[in-house]
Amino acid sequence: MEIQFQGKRALVTGAGKGIGRAIAKKLVECGAETIALSRTQADLDSLKAEVKGIIPVLCDVADFDATRKIVQSLGPIHLLVNNAGITRLGSFLEFSMKDFEDVLNVNTKAVFNMSQVVAKGMVERGGGGSIVNISSVASTRALDEHIAYCTSKSAVDSITRVMALELGKHKIRVNSVNPTVTWTDMAAFAWSDPAKSGPMLAKIPMGKFVELEDVVNTVLFLLSDKSAITTGQHIILDGGMSAC
């Protein structure tokens, strides 16, 4: 199934590394004029050198006012991927409010902030659009020492459903992609210890974690007209874990 985005402008947050970087590169390959947001200049520089035509934008999505100004200056956006995310690990009893707020600011509040700005533009233009939020199976499962991360992704799923409900009449589709562990630098930080990864893998019938390509392909499908009737959905990528 060939997917093309000629004539579309896409924006990907957290595009400097991992999942976001892979999505941004594939969007360019599929013909979209792609804006890559990252808070790290070095990552943007390397991405620009690697991918001809990509538009790098330095932006910390946790700075809500600055983000709104930057995004409003970018012009029309037809496709949005809210990918930026962080994690902090720690036991519930010892977890700090500062770490809790940091995770929610990036993983949850930034999704609301970014989507509101982009969706208003979509509504004003009247041409519809597609928004994909990168969530996680952690939105519905309790993970040890992940109090902030699990909370943040549960909220992302709720945001996704409400956005889909309210924006459907404007021909704007909103979905989330919910993978289990996807082997990026952030995942390695949380799951590199075999004592943690082993029990998790044992719960996955397919016996493996998610590959970047698995997430990228699902995101592209949801952004495209191939999923024209799909909205308000959480697409779980977990190798069958939720079937157990």
Rank of each mutant, 00 (worst) to 15 (best):
G198E: 10
P179K: 02
A15E: 06
P205I: 15
K98Y: 05
S130C: 00
M97L: 10
V219A: 05
V132R: 00
I134R: 00
S176G: 06
K226M: 07
V216S: 10
D65Q: 08
A228P: 06
I70E: 05
T184I: 07
A190H: 06
E94M: 11
C59H: 03
H170Q: 15
R88A: 05
V181M: 09
G126F: 09
W183V: 13
I204Y: 03
M114D: 04
K153S: 02
S192H: 06
T87S: 12
N107Q: 02
L89T: 14
A228I: 09
W183K: 06
T40W: 10
L201F: 02
S130Y: 00
I70N: 08
G127W: 09
P56D: 01
V216A: 10
K26Y: 05
C150Y: 03
L220V: 04
T151G: 03
K17I: 07
I54K: 11
M114S: 06
G126E: 12
C30F: 07
M241P: 00
V111T: 09
S154I: 13
V12K: 00
R141V: 09
G126S: 12
S154T: 14
I131V: 08
I70R: 07
W191V: 01
A202F: 11
A32E: 05
S115K: 00
P194E: 06
S38D: 14
I54M: 07
A66V: 10
F100Y: 15
M206D: 08
M186Y: 04
A195E: 08
T218S: 15
I229P: 10
P76D: 14
A10Y: 07
D102N: 15
A42G: 15
S136D: 06
I77T: 04
A155V: 04
D102G: 03
A228W: 14
G232F: 02
G31H: 05
C30V: 13
A243W: 08
K203R: 14
M122K: 00
T140S: 11
D60K: 10
R173F: 01
L58A: 11
G198P: 07
K208E: 12
A62G: 14
R9N: 09
A42K: 09
P179S: 13
G232N: 04
A32D: 03
Q6C: 15
F92T: 09
L47N: 05
L80R: 02
L80C: 13
I134W: 00
A138N: 09
D102F: 00
R21P: 01
H78E: 08
Q233R: 15
D214Q: 13
V111D: 05
